[in-house]
C-alpha cells in the first residue's frame, strides 16, 4: 500500500534539497537534525533553526551539545542561529520570504550556503492543511534557485501518514538518519520507535566488528535513556544470514544488558535463524528475548 520511495540519508543531502522528516520519537528528530546542522558546519554553511517555541537559542540547541558541538561558540560566531519565526501564529505565511532573505544574508556573510531546519506546527497548518500546502509550494522556487538545504520536520504523533503522504509531492522526498554501517553484505540503521537497530543483509566473519560497534553504541544510548528497564530492539526482518560468531555477540550483548536489568529484544527472526538459536541453546539465555513477528 505504501509506495513512499526510500528515504535519503541525511548525510547524502546536497544544495537544493528540500526534504520531509516524519519522526516518531524526539530522539529521531534530534539525531537527524543534529547530523544536518553539524554537516553544515563542516560544509561552510550557516545553520538556521526555526523552532516550535520562543526559546533561548542555547536551550533550543542542547541536543547539539551532547553530540560534541560547542553551541555557545557557534551561536556567538553566527554559524548557528535560532529564529522563533515559526513559533508565531502566522509563521507559515511568509516562510519562503524568510528563507530567501536568510540565504542571501548567509551568502553575503561569506558562507557557502544555508541549512534550515523547520518544525511544522499543526496549529498553523490551516483548515485542511491549506496554509501548510501553500507555504510548502512557495518554498519550492527558493530551494530551486538558492544555495539552501532544508528539512521540514513533521511529528508523526501529531500528523498521521494520510496527511503526510500528499506532502511528499511538495518535497524532494524524505530524509532519515544516516546508516550506521553499510558494506556490500550488510547495512545497519538506527530505529527510533522502538529504539534500536535494524540489520539488513548478512553478518559474517568479515563485518561482525561493525555489528559489535553498532550494538555497543546502541546499548550505551539505551542505558542513558530515562525509561524504566533498558530495552534495545534489533530488527532482523531483513537479515538473510547471521553466523554463529555474530549470534554469539548478540547473546553476549543481551547478557551484559541483563546484568543491569535490561533486555535485548530480537524482532522478526527468520525460522532458520531461530533454528540456529535453538540448536545452540541461545533461545534460552538471560537478557535475550525473541519477539514473535507480527507477520
Amino acid at each position: 500500500m505504501d509506495t513512499v520511495p526510500a528515504p535519503r540519508a541525511v548525510g547524502e543531502m546536497r544544495a537544493g534539497d528540500h526534504l520531509l522528516l516524519g519522526y516518531e520519537a524526539d530522539e529521531e528528530r534530534e539525531t537527524v537534525v543534529a547530523a544536518f546542522l553539524l554537516d553544515g558546519l563542516a560544509s561552510g554553511h550557516r545553520g538556521l533553526v526555526l523552532g516550535p517555541a520562543d526559546l533561548p537559542a542555547d536551550l533550543a540547541l542542547t541536543f547539539l551539545e551532547s553530540r560534541g558541538c560547542a553551541v555557545d561558540d557557534e551561536l556567538a560566531a553566527g554559524r548557528l542561529s535560532v529564529d522563533p519565526h515559526l513559533a508565531t501564529p502566522d509563521g507559515l505565511w511568509d516562510l519562503d520570504e524568510v528563507i530567501r532573505r536568510e540565504t542571501r544574508r548567509a551568502v553575503g556573510d561569506g558562507y557557502l550556503g544555508l541549512r534550515v531546519s523547520m518544525e511544522i506546527m499543526r496549529g498553523q497548518a490551516g483548515k485542511g492543511l491549506k496554509t501548510l500546502h501553500d507555504s510548502e509550494l512557495l518554498l519550492e522556487p527558493v530551494f530551486a534557485s538558492l544555495p539552501v538545504l532544508g528539512i521540514c520536520q513533521y511529528d508523526r504523533r501529531v500528523f498521521d501518514e494520510g496527511e503526510l503522504a500528499p506532502l511528499d509531492g511538495l518535497h524532494h522526498g524524505r530524509v532519515a538518519a544516516d546508516l550506521v554501517w553499510h558494506d556490500e553484505l550488510l547495512s545497519i540503521t538506527r530505529t527510533f520507535a522502538p529504539p534500536g537497530l535494524a540489520l539488513a543483509g548478512e553478518v559474517d566473519d568479515t563485518n561482525v566488528t561493525a555489528l559489535a560497534r553498532a550494538l555497543h553504541a546502541e546499548t550505551a544510548r539505551a542505558r542513558a535513556r530515562p525509561v524504566n528497564g533498558v530495552r534495545t530492539r534489533i530488527d532482523l526482518r531483513d537479515l538473510r544470514f547471521i553466523d554463529v560468531g555474530a549470534l554469539r555477540l548478540l547473546v553476549f550483548a543481551g547478557g551484559a544488558l541483563s546484568a543491569s536489568g535490561g533486555t535485548l529484544v530480537l524482532h522478526g527472526v527468520a525460522p532458520h535463524i531461530q533454528r540456529l538459536m535453538r540448536v545452540t541453546g541461545w533461545d534460552r539465555v538471560p537478557g535475550l528475548v525473541v519477539e514473535q513477528s507480527d507477520l
Binding site: 554469539r248 547473546v251 547478557g255 540448536v279 545452540t280 541453546g281 541461545w282
Partner: peptide, 10 residues
C-alpha cells in the same frame, strides 16, 4: 551457551 567458543562445530 555462555562459552566463548565451541558452538560452530556443534
Amino acid at each position: 551457551p555462555s562459552a566463548a567458543n565451541g558452538h560452530g562445530m556443534w
